[in-house]
Design a protein around this nucleic acid. Structure first.
Lengths: 139, 139
DNA sequence: GGCGGAACGTTAGCCGGTAAATGATTAGCC
DNA sequence: GGCTAATCATTTACCGGCTAACGTTCCGCC
């Protein structure tokens, strides 16, 4: 049966669908907000750094960067001192999305957790955190 | 910040990676065990039925069925009475995976939730269930 | 009995995700 | 200084997921 895995999987799909439609309102695809968040935090990061921050592999970031570069959210530029490195820089359009997208994300989080009491939410975070740690160790 | 969404996302990626390597031990790709589970429960189901059971769209099931048919886990056959319908039938190879795959899945669930007490697990399921319900309603 | 709409599966095209192979550049060691 | 090894990004080729368009087949109604 695997109850927890099943529930987690169902929840993941529902949340993904919600995030998808929420981000599409800003012209983004699922996950692109995370990449932007990494650049909002540290503009000029390399694909490898971003991949690590996003818990994702480098090719994923490379492909997303290519698309987001095509839609004018960021630009690719080689590092001056080390030509192996590539640095991703936000455009004005990419920077402009910060406030609305962060608000959208906060709103989604609030709506999703609205049915929980303060205590329930705290317990949920703790328990899920433990599951995450167990999973990381098994990786 | 969106704490819960962030933690949930990280956990999802870790769990996905674990499930991936676990299922690869049986020659399956991520998610194919769910499709098989649907057929173990009701052999001869249609793609549409399976999609509904898996909370997934029909095209996804169709593509997976094509690949799994190529690897000999199931066969496609048109319904005798209604030629619009297609029914997926397990092969011996598909049936043979039931015990080992279900055991693998139970083992994974156990390992993942090993760090939680009985009470914590129950609270986690309840709280996550509420999040799931909220998400479903917002869909 | 024929015709239009409904119910299915399939195809095409896109996105995020992965692993493995490729290519370019730097760093380090002899 | 030159050769080798390490470090990056990129490409290729998959897989699961989605939406939208398409083609069949059945059903109901006139």
């Amino acid at each position: 049966m695997a109850e927890f895995l099943d529930l987690h999987s169902k929840t993941t799909k529902a949340l993904r669908a919600l995030a998808e439609t929420a981000m599409r309102r800003h012209g983004l695809h699922q996950g692109q907000d995370h990449l932007l968040a990494a650049l909002w935090e540290r503009d000029g990061s390399t694909p490898g750094e971003i991949a690590a921050a996003l818990h994702v592999t480098t090719p994923t970031v490379v492909k997303m960067a290519t698309r987001m570069s095509a839609t004018g959210l960021l630009v690719r530029r080689r590092d001056e001192h080390d030509s192996r490195l590539v640095r991703l820089w936000l455009t004005d359009a990419g920077r402009a999305l910060r406030e609305p997208v962060e608000a959208e994300r906060r709103g989604l989080e609030d709506k999703i957790t609205a049915g929980l009491t303060e205590t329930e939410l705290r317990q949920l975070m703790t328990a899920l955190g433990k599951v995450y740690e167990s999973a990381r160790e098994l990786l």
